[in-house]
């Protein structure tokens, strides 16, 4: 059973949903207030969706300096798993834990509706139970979801398999290369604009998002087996 810390910022509003989704997946999930200075021995840190600090200045720009973020950065640098959903993704970008930034939707409107994303990278702690190329229906709810990176970084993300999810059917917000989620070089920090915690049970209209949380637990069991096969910094898969 993994210990999952769900960070609560002033203005977070998907924190309870993220906690419930992690518990449904079998994790020992708990809230950590943003003024705490430790993530209390978490295996996984989740930065939930919402409007931290009212999105003042820029989405995530102020939350990224909350006291707990020092501990989150240390956890990430030590290879710990971190998932940022929506506002959490914006915070991770502002904190420099993920590349790029999220700007106002291309057509300006706040969008709350289903989207379809293709899993591009199953080799992360949050996607290991998905098949590459699988298309998921997961809703978005954001005004600032247009993922932006410079051309060089975009090419690097594509070449190194760091685009984790990509919008298909349509690009709701004008994101670069239809990107819906990315990971860092170590594949331990992941950000996603759609809300997998809102699609983790049939009662919620679908469960395409459930495996994001189930993957955390699955990864735990296989971590050592993967590690012993790592040679020259590359994981040999069997």
């Amino acid at each position: 059973m993994k210990r999952v810390a769900v960070i609560v910022f002033p203005g977070s509003n998907c924190d309870a949903d993220a906690l419930a989704a992690a518990r449904d997946a079998g994790s020992e999930a708990y809230f950590v207030w943003h003024r705490d200075t430790t993530v209390q021995g978490a295996d996984v840190v989740v930065l939930p969706g919402g409007f931290s600090y009212g999105d003042y200045l820029r989405s995530g720009a102020i939350a990224r300096f909350s006291p707990v973020m020092t501990a989150v950065a240390e956890h990430a640098r030590a290879g710990g798993a971190v998932l940022g959903i929506c506002n959490g993704f914006q915070i991770l970008c502002e904190a420099g834990l993920l590349p790029g930034g999220l700007m106002r939707n291309a057509r300006l409107r706040f969008l709350s509706r289903p989207t379809w994303v293709r899993v591009e990278q199953p080799d992360t702690p949050f996607t290991c139970l998905y098949r590459r190329g699988e298309v998921l229906e997961i809703p978005i709810a954001h005004g600032d979801g247009r993922y932006v990176v410079d051309a060089r970084t975009a090419a690097e993300l594509e070449a190194t398999g760091r685009v984790v999810w990509r919008y298909v059917r349509d690009n709701p917000n004008g994101s670069t290369n239809d990107i819906a989620g990315v990971t860092n070089a170590g594949h331990n920090v992941v950000g996603i604009m759609p809300h997998p915690e809102r699609r983790n049970a049939p009662a919620l209209g679908g469960q395409d998002g459930a495996r994001v949380f189930l993957s955390m637990e699955a990864r735990h069991a296989t971590q050592h087996a993967v590690d012993v096969r790592a040679r020259d910094g590359r994981h040999l898969r069997v």
Partner: peptide, 8 residues
């Protein structure tokens, strides 16, 4: 540090 995001 804060007022502008150098990425965007």
């Amino acid at each position: 540090r804060l007022l502008a995001n150098p990425v965007t």
